[in-house]
Write a protein that binds this DNA or RNA. Structure first.
Lengths: 353, 353
DNA sequence: AATCCGGATTTGATCGTTCAACACGTCGAG
DNA sequence: CTCGACGTGTTGAACGATCAAATCCGGATT
């Protein structure tokens, strides 16, 4: 059996079904306009010839490529990659349900990268963009809005006028939950290991921490440095060695938290029973035995769905969800040994891998 | 200043330059056919109008979409993700140099997923495919070859006739290097923690270990289980508690190695000085302080380049590299504390992040 | 009986590009 | 002097789909 003519066209299907081009086209795009009987005949011909509309031809005519541009960042050395990985998968899946696909490209950070976006638009290669890793002073939301280009961001626009639609994780709420969790366990001296001021994400998270402390009558105590394991280790070490050492450490990211865990180990302290540690992102390493880090997990799949829905709404493919232009989703706290008192839940139920 | 007419076409450029469509087209696709003077005039018009050829129209005519299909797997819970992340980035970058882009899609594993590939082909949405995570009995290479579809795999075809082109990491060579490294450090009882027989990747790696042992006059000793942290911990524990315990453990993956590290910690043994541990993949967690795992790092960027080059060669876009149909690249051993004797290189030079 | 209506289907034009063939002038060889 | 080759540039036709308007036809209206 030969490959069933890899080149079926509207015309060939039409001929096989004894109708005209347009009728076949209607069967696919506006079935209600075709009489049931003819429709069936056409559908059989489509099956028989394994016909699928040619995407280039359709795009040329309709001026829609059914492709969504997505910029893959120069991998930040194992930072938030796992999160983005799941995000991309979720987005790809939801987009496919509506006949859309992701088109990947790379671009330098900042306004130097805007040409790449412009290039794809000029070529009409994409219908819109999905942004991730929006940062303070990110030129993309403003520029895309000016150009009238449909886009949705995973991550709010952190500065300037709040432009375009976005979905984001409520880091502040997550950190508040972390503090409340620790407070409920009896901790009263809870410190925060953060990033330098000026990063939108970091400032949001520290704000949640501070607010929770104030509400619970605790003294907020924030130290900051670049978010590497080594700095986390140093900051935590300084806190633990200083006067009035904290009994719990809330960290702006898992990476900082790994550093904090290391600082505990350096001093013979047990994470959990002696000093509690909480991270953010729930990276794969967090669940490793021997690490067992309590962390805030982002609802990535849901974000993926919402982002796709918004973008397809802007493109007129689905009905634009009536809600607000922005969506803030709460992360969920995954409690592991690093924030459990001694003896509680000794052998955690085996987590999936 | 308004948006410079977002809709420049060949025709409008031709009018501006006082030539015909085809001449403009030639300036772009076959400049040598155009007289230098006219060429310059046309190029100026192109600049002025910010003209970029419409991709759909070009695709329709040339029957090339300039898109490469790439299937994103349902994230395997933090397994080899970081590796694939870097791979995708590298591929995207190299492909872009030739005007190609990656188109993402999802598909169920096994032959159930072949429809998704077929669908994209029927729509002429992609010119070829890039495969990753090829497994034993993978139907894709055979099917694509039968259909005459251009593709290149990252990962050899592990069973059946060896079809199509691929680039892969020489796991056996890597494991051999690991054994030699440990042997040079004085280790004589080196055990291997592997996966169950039947996985191509796992069998390849154990083969390299076994060969090296035999060549060095060591007794190969292989234990196997599913490659999770917990099983790694259990297997390593059994070895360490058994008769004639090994002084070094070579692990089929970082995940198993993390389990092995945990088993050492359970028994108060120090990784490195007491028992050496080596993993595979150099996952981000390997470099965390407190983990510091010696591991084999895959040359992902190079694989990305080679894979793209081969595929574009098959598509006739670049000259097909004259070499063999397959390329095996050696991983490099990254030595960290888990395989260093006591006191050597006390404070490792700060690794990047 | 002539008219109108509306659902079902068809026809021509078009999206923007490249391919194939052809027109034009010049130049060198026979 | 004629012919063919060559360098340069043009024109018509296609690629395969959708849009917009035209056509067809049976049945209800007047």
């Amino acid at each position: 059996m030969a490959t069933p003519e890899s080149g079926a066209t509207l015309e060939s299907v039409a001929f096989a079904a004894g109708v005209s081009r347009q009728t076949v086209s209607n069967v696919l795009n506006a079935p209600e306009r075709v009489a049931p009987e003819t429709r069936q005949r056409v559908e059989e011909a489509i099956q028989a010839l394994r016909y699928r509309p040619n995407r280039s031809a359709r795009s040329l005519r309709t001026r829609m490529s059914n492709l969504i541009g997505y910029c893959v960042q120069p991998a930040l050395a194992g930072n938030i990659n796992p999160v983005l990985d799941r995000f991309v998968h979720a987005v790809t899946e939801y987009a496919a349900e509506h006949g859309f696909h992701l088109l990947l490209f790379t671009a330098p950070a900042g306004s130097a990268g805007l040409d790449r976006y412009a290039e794809l638009l000029a070529q009409r290669a994409v219908d819109g963009f999905l942004l991730t890793d929006t940062v303070v002073g990110d030129p993309r939301p403003g520029w895309l809005t000016e150009q009238g280009v449909p886009f949705v961001a995973f991550g709010r626009s952190w500065s300037g006028p709040d432009r375009g639609r976005w979905v984001d994780v409520d880091g502040a709420a997550g950190m508040t939950e972390a503090v409340e969790h620790l407070h409920a366990l009896g901790h009263r001296r809870i410190a925060f290991i953060g990033w330098p001021e000026g990063s939108g994400v970091g400032d949001d998270r520290v704000a949640g921490y501070t607010a929770a402390c104030l509400r619970l009558g605790l003294d907020p105590r924030v130290v900051r440095a670049e978010g590497t394991v080594d700095t986390g280790r140093a900051l935590a070490g300084a806190l633990l060695d200083g006067a009035d050492p904290p009994t719990a450490l809330v960290c702006v990211s898992d990476l900082s938290a790994y550093g904090a865990l290391r600082a505990l180990a350096d001093r013979g302290l047990r994470p959990g029973p002696d000093v509690a540690v909480v991270g953010f992102d729930d990276t794969p390493a967090a669940r490793l035995p021997g690490v067992d880090l309590t962390s805030l997990s982002q609802p990535i799949e849901q974000i993926g769905r919402e982002v796709v829905q918004m973008l397809l709404g802007l493109l007129g493919v689905v009905e634009l969800p009536p809600g607000p232009e922005h969506r803030l989703l709460r992360p969920t706290l995954v409690v592991r040994a690093s924030s459990r008192p001694a003896g509680s839940a000794p052998a955690a139920p085996t987590e999936a891998r």
